[in-house]
Design a protein around this nucleic acid. Structure first.
Lengths: 333, 333
DNA sequence: CTGTTAGCGCTTTCAG
DNA sequence: CTGAAAGCGCTAACAG
């Protein structure tokens, strides 16, 4: 169905080798007139080289793979994807994205990667679908990869850490310092179904533990603006309503601000609200949203890690980047 | 680096053919004991078949490709992606996603598809990066594809239409019927840089034309919640503020509701607000958001189109689906 | 300057 | 029940 180099060669009256040299632009001297014939033939047939054959032969795909929890679930993924695409473009790579969603598909995604879909991978999957073993096994194949994860013991790849737990501790301590004692936490689902607290939830519990506050109000809702609004509304209309809400995502926190306003409560007077992620939208709420997160949303350093690895002669030592997360006090707390 | 079938074969003391038969599970009789030896050897070496080689040989990838404007830009993409993944899973396909972003990358994406990255494609790209010619050229290669587009003249593929223009006309006529005359439109960028109005913007201008209203207030902002908030704020604080805002996205419309409330205006008393897309979040605003959009967010019919095509013996005739879009009056208008 | 040829790693006849 | 061998479409020596 699709034309092959062979057909182009026949049409142009040259060998397939010449077709290959002309079209892949490798520096082999070829007569201008011949080159033109090949180009014409290729255009006429609508020829595009078969990537499977090419990468089988060259043993590289000129592709990188972005592995995410889902397509469009997490706001920061958008920036990560943009920055990756930008650098990939500049270095002549194309980008494909893979969504993990479930544990079953985590295995499938690993197989696709092991099957050689790309020369390298940038992995940002929250939750525990992509187990440590899966990741280690993949790294052990020699696939260049950089993983955004706070898990320990990841070897053979670059790791990007986000000290979110520490930053969340700081945020909750800030609330405690104001005298708030009934602090509710809106969690991401993936942080709830674990045997012990991790990540942002761990920040919450750690801060409370540290200050001898025993009350824990933990609900889900951070994954979803609507759920967050409903949860916050329930919380805020209950007789023993919290005096602070710490949400594991800014989106949920913003919903909480709206829930508070709609319930006739003042923020931060009646209830302080803090989010996580530092999305721009926090600047247009009334009051502006206090949050923990990165000061700048820039993943170029992360992305560079991957391309350094791809273009290195031999595998460089595993590197680690620690992204900076801080508490940003604004009007809502 | 990565083990090949040959190495598995040597370790198991069988031929590569046997390895292939055992691992790809095709129904060739093979002794239980031999099968086990192969399985063990494969496990021991951590063998995963090379997909490039496999699909070169089989002339199919068992993959489908989802082509989007961006990763995580459009809320409806999330549903589309989910539904596609679900059906792909059920039929034994994997899914890779491609983001187009710019015109340059549109060409790159087409090349990747022509290069045979997948057996079929589901394409949902707004704006004009993916030109009619690019799409037609791709369809002409025989690649099974379904395209979400209102453009006419797309041949050789299934097309999914969304009658958004008509639904938008209805929404604006509803505003006009209320006596609103200064109706502002918050547009998506891609609708602004065209020679003539299309899509949702066209709905806006058509309705106004039809009712002899000459005032046009067209701004950008629909792509971005923050920009929408700022734009709406400017609009609403100006001396000749609009009495209605029609936003090309619900996200922007919700920002506009906030902007109105923060400006001390009542919705819909002082200003009516209507969005587009019918996202769930419109149900938790105060007042609830009037919108145009689908009643149910379900893409299984769209996705089925693709898999029907993939699994058909010979190419079925091009089909067309028209998704239903309606005006949903709620509290904000 | 150009053609011939040997694979890349896999699947699938065809022989046994 | 299993192996040998051809070949998917391409690239890269090597030979001319």
């Amino acid at each position: 169905m699709r034309p092959t180099a062979r057909q182009v060669a026949e049409l142009a009256n040259v060998s397939v080798a010449t077709v290959s040299y002309v079209l892949s632009g490798r520096d082999r001297p070829v007569a201008a007139e011949t080159r033109q014939r090949v180009l014409d033939a290729a255009r006429q047939l609508g020829y595009t080289p078969n990537q499977a054959a090419r990468s089988l032969r060259k043993r590289r795909t000129q592709r990188v793979c972005l592995v995410l929890s889902s397509i469009g679930g997490v706001p920061s993924d958008e920036r990560l994807a943009r920055d990756l695409h930008e650098m990939a473009d500049a270095r002549g790579y194309s980008v494909v994205a893979l969504a993990v969603y479930s544990e079953a598909r985590a295995n499938a995604a690993i197989d696709v990667l092991r099957g050689g879909i790309a020369d390298g991978a940038l992995i940002n999957v929250v939750g525990d679908h992509l187990t440590h073993d899966l990741l280690s096994g993949l790294a052990a194949t020699g696939l260049p990869m950089v993983v955004l994860s706070n898990e320990s013991g990841l070897e053979g790849c670059d790791v990007v850490r986000t000290p979110e737990t520490e930053a969340c501790v700081e945020a909750v301590e800030h609330l405690l310092a104001q005298g708030r004692r009934r602090i509710a936490f809106l969690a991401h689902r993936h942080e709830l179904y674990r045997d012990r607290p991790v990540g942002r939830l761990l920040g919450y519990t750690t801060a409370l533990d540290r200050h001898g506050v025993t009350e824990r109000i933990i609900t889900s809702g951070a994954d979803d603006r609507v759920a967050a609004y409903q949860t916050a509304t329930e919380l805020l209309r209950s007789p023993d309503r919290p005096d602070a809400i710490f949400a594991a995502s800014d989106r949920a926190a913003i919903s909480a601000i709206w829930a508070a306003r709609d319930a006739g409560l003042s923020v931060p007077g009646d209830v302080a609200i803090v989010g996580a992620g530092n999305i721009d939208e926090g600047l247009i709420t009334t009051p502006q949203l206090s949050t923990v997160g990165p000061l700048r949303h820039d993943y170029t350093d992360v992305v560079r890690l991957l391309f350094d690895r791809l273009q290195a002669e031999e595998a460089p030592p595993a590197r680690e980047i620690v992204r900076s997360w801080t508490f940003l006090r604004r009007g809502s707390s």
